[in-house]
């Protein structure tokens, strides 16, 4: 695997690799996401306790899971950037951060729109909600720290350090519903057991999740390409690729 992975550390190779992946990822993301969401909105049954509000699950759960796995991905890239000083790993930290921040914001906002009719409140300082809000601040912190240094190299290092330290929040979010008495319900899918969701709701949920996942990967490819060009614009290969002399 490493023999296959290693050439991708070279910016030029990674630029073309992401370029080949992007159209497939983007088109399949749009198709699968719309398919999953429409299934959830129109064909999936109501919940016997939450009625039609349960349909928010098809965007809330995928965006919440994605906010965490995107963070994990960013933290791994940051770790690689700090330990092995791989340039493209550091650039990808900053390419990933805004995408993860948007997914986190979506999970919080959809959660609020679900909480108001079911819990009777838009917001509660509950362990799950608070730790998820901290995740949003971590993403924004990574972006802001990078921007705070006039030297991109230093900014990238400091932002990577914050991304690695912030990974401690991920298990806290995941287990918050078990460790504390929360208003938020427990896990129904991400547990070491068969999911406690009926297939008629589980399938549209898993398809929506796949759609969100593909969209995240597509956008990371796109932003990473822009970041590579931005950092390498004075190199001959960029001029050769973009056709100018």
């Amino acid at each position: 695997m490493f023999k296959w992975l290693h050439p991708l550390a070279k910016p030029e190779t990674l630029y073309h690799f992401c370029g080949r992946l992007f159209p497939w990822l983007m088109l399949s993301a749009i198709g699968i996401l719309l398919f999953g969401n429409l299934w959830g909105l129109v064909f999936a049954p109501q919940d016997y306790q939450q009625f039609d509000t349960v349909r928010i699950i098809y965007i809330h759960v995928p965006s919440a899971l994605l906010s965490m796995s995107t963070y994990t991905m960013m933290a791994i890239a940051a770790f690689i950037a700090l330990v092995w000083q791989v340039k493209v790993a550091q650039w990808s930290v900053l390419a990933i951060a805004p995408i993860g921040a948007v997914f986190t914001a979506i999970s919080l906002l959809t959660g609020m729109a679900w909480g108001k009719p079911m819990w009777g409140t838009w917001w509660e300082w509950d362990a799950r909600l608070t730790s998820q809000l901290i995740l949003l601040f971590l993403y924004l912190g990574v972006i802001a720290l990078y921007g705070a240094f006039s030297d991109r190299q230093t900014g990238g290092k400091v932002a990577s350090l914050l991304a690695v330290i912030g990974i401690v929040n991920i298990p806290i979010i995941h287990f918050s519903v078990e460790w504390w008495n929360t208003l938020h319900q427990g896990a129904s899918i991400t547990k070491f057991d068969t999911p406690s969701v009926h297939p008629s709701m589980l399938w549209p949920l898993l398809i929506s999740l796949l759609g969100f996942y593909l969209l995240m990967l597509a956008l990371v490819c796109l932003r990473l390409r822009t970041a590579i060009l931005e950092h390498e614009q004075h190199r001959p290969w960029v001029r050769a690729t973009l056709g100018g002399h």
Partner: peptide, 10 residues
Amino acid sequence: FYIWLAYGLT
């Protein structure tokens, strides 16, 4: 209102 608010924002 709540469902379309959630989907609209998303």
